[in-house]
Amino acid sequence: ELLEKYGGWESKHVVDLFEKFAKTAFSLFGDDVKYWTTFNEPMVIPEAGYLYGFHYPKYSGKGKEAAQIVYNINLASAKAIRAFRESGKDGEIGIILNLTPAYPRSDSREDTEAARLVDGFFNRSYLDPAVKGEFPKDVVEVLEKDGVLPAWTQEELDLIRNNTVDFLGVNYYHPKRVRAAEQADREQWKDWMPDWYGVEWEWPEARINPYRGWEIYPKAMYDIAKNVQDNYGNIKWFVSENGMGVEGEEKYRKADGSIEDDYRIDFYKEHLEQLHKAIEEGSNCIGYHPWTAMDCWSWNNAYKNRYGFIAVDLNDQSRTIKKSGRWFREVSDSNGFTIEEKK
């Protein structure tokens, strides 16, 4: 509420307050904590809070403000990185991004351009400054052409350029399927929105997790790994989140209380196969962290969708290891699993 009084992440003052917060954290915990990340899923703030209104402060259609927020968070991250390096503390500092690869509906120029712009705004607008120290030129050109370029200074741009991450965390759940925007799409929004260029499209062949409405597309894990390898200097990175939320898992409960969640095991197997393939081809991935250990609470859905290896009974808070948890323990102990031949 206090930060909202200053304008939230639209405000450069909030950027300075974040730097102050980071300095305090480094001072208090820098002798013990060796690995830091500045933000987790920073795109959620403008996307959910200002573009489409499903997270606080629940604005929608505020594309210009969202662009400024993307810039301000990148600036705040760079200031925190600078503060960490100036602190003299041992360790490394990075950022965690939720990457949603954008795939065009067709090979047409219109659809491929739309997917490129959507990827630019929702993925590369954080990925490029964090790793390369610069904003994607194609996105900057569009924002400038449309008169919604964020307010920035050369001093700030220099600071971003000189304070890039040591490593990258990636949260991956689903891709974006994109088609070129049509006149009707543009008319839905009074003011500038990325939807003026590309909108999400339902691929008829998509495998959908019905509880989240998200597409299950393991190959995107490979595509992310190769993108980081080929276009971002093969920076050290890890999968910080990847998982499957399912509603009503009690219907898969056995007599002993455990959950027979073979669907979750299949989900992880398919994603790990794709990640393993990329690592074999040289991608510098150093770790894989599923989401999550125990069923957890969500901002929008409370405990509706269960993600954990361990089931949580909300009546008495008792914990029971699911079949997937025992499977993942075996994977961890043996450092792998056998890939079954596809029939």
Rank of each mutant, 00 (worst) to 15 (best):
K323I: 01
K5R: 12
A114E: 04
V14P: 00
N72I: 05
G49P: 06
Y35G: 13
K20V: 00
Y50E: 07
N209C: 13
G233F: 04
F39S: 14
I208D: 09
D256V: 00
I93H: 07
R186N: 08
A78K: 05
G287C: 05
F167L: 11
G336K: 05
Y126W: 10
N301C: 08
V70A: 02
I339Y: 08
L17C: 12
D262I: 01
G30P: 11
Y56N: 12
N163W: 04
K34W: 12
G7F: 13
R161P: 00
E247P: 02
Q188G: 06
V331G: 13
N171E: 07
P42K: 15
E4N: 10
Q183Y: 02
N242D: 04
Y232H: 08
R186F: 03
G233L: 05
H289P: 03
P101H: 11
W201G: 10
D166L: 09
G30F: 10
S106L: 12
F328G: 14
H55D: 09
D333G: 01
E241V: 06
F267H: 15
K132E: 06
D195R: 03
M244W: 05
R179Y: 03
D333Y: 01
W9Y: 13
A22S: 14
S240T: 15
E281R: 05
I93C: 12
S11L: 11
Y52E: 10
E65I: 01
S77G: 07
S77L: 10
R116N: 06
V246S: 11
F167S: 07
I73P: 00
K34E: 15
A181N: 04
N162S: 10
G325Y: 07
G120E: 06
Y211C: 11
L3E: 08
K58T: 02
S11K: 06
A293R: 02
I69W: 02
E202L: 03
E113N: 13
E280T: 10
I95A: 10
D262F: 00
S258F: 00
D316I: 12
E41Y: 14
P175H: 09
Y222G: 02
R253C: 01
N305C: 04
S87V: 12
T153C: 01
Y252K: 10
E247C: 03
Y71K: 03
Q274F: 03
